[in-house]
């Protein structure tokens, strides 16, 4: 049973300072930030809509458009970069037929890049949903993607 926007806001004691955390929770629930949800946050917290919108667009973690069932995060941190992460993300784009930050039309995958997931010793790293995959090279991309329906 997903928690409602009101419940999430209540969990943080309607603390305006916890806006980022509130949006994180909404995003976890819906996989993106629906407009109606943001409107509700505005009225429940009593903050200007412009502030909620600016925070929702400033931070990389938030998306205002629906995302796929599986969110692929290719790490482009420095350690992954020197071990060839650029080739990995290019292979993903080729396989999926979308560019980074986009979602496949069937809503199966969303392809994102992140700056560091903190597994630098195992680069290149790919995170799919909550699962970590280390030492991914371009030839491992297709079999990896196939595992996610």
């Amino acid at each position: 049973m997903p928690s409602s926007i009101a419940e999430i806001v209540k969990k943080y004691d309607r603390d305006k300072g916890q806006l980022v955390s509130i949006l994180q929770d909404i995003q976890t629930e819906h996989h993106y930030l629906p407009k109606e949800a943001l409107d509700e946050v505005v009225s429940l917290l009593g903050v200007p809509a412009s502030q909620v919108y600016s925070v929702a667009t400033f931070f990389k973690a938030f998306s205002l458009t629906p995302r796929g069932r599986h969110v692929i995060k290719v790490c482009l941190g420095t350690a992954c970069h020197v071990r060839g992460a650029a080739k990995v993300v290019e292979k993903m784009e080729l396989d999926l037929g979308i560019k980074r930050t986009e979602t496949t039309p069937d809503l199966r995958y969303t392809l994102e890049t992140v700056n560091c997931v903190g597994c630098c010793a195992l680069g290149p790293m790919v995170m799919i949903d909550e699962k970590y995959h280390g030492q991914i090279t371009s030839d491992k991309v297709s079999p990896l993607l196939a595992k996610y329906e």
Partner: peptide, 24 residues
């Protein structure tokens, strides 16, 4: 308080702005 994936928020004043629920 959880950050939203912005490198600049490691900077003290940006981090504090973010803690107040504002853009970092």
């Amino acid at each position: 308080s959880r950050g939203g994936g912005a490198f600049v928020c490691g900077e003290s004043t940006a981090l504090m702005a973010s803690l107040e629920g504002k853009v970092g």
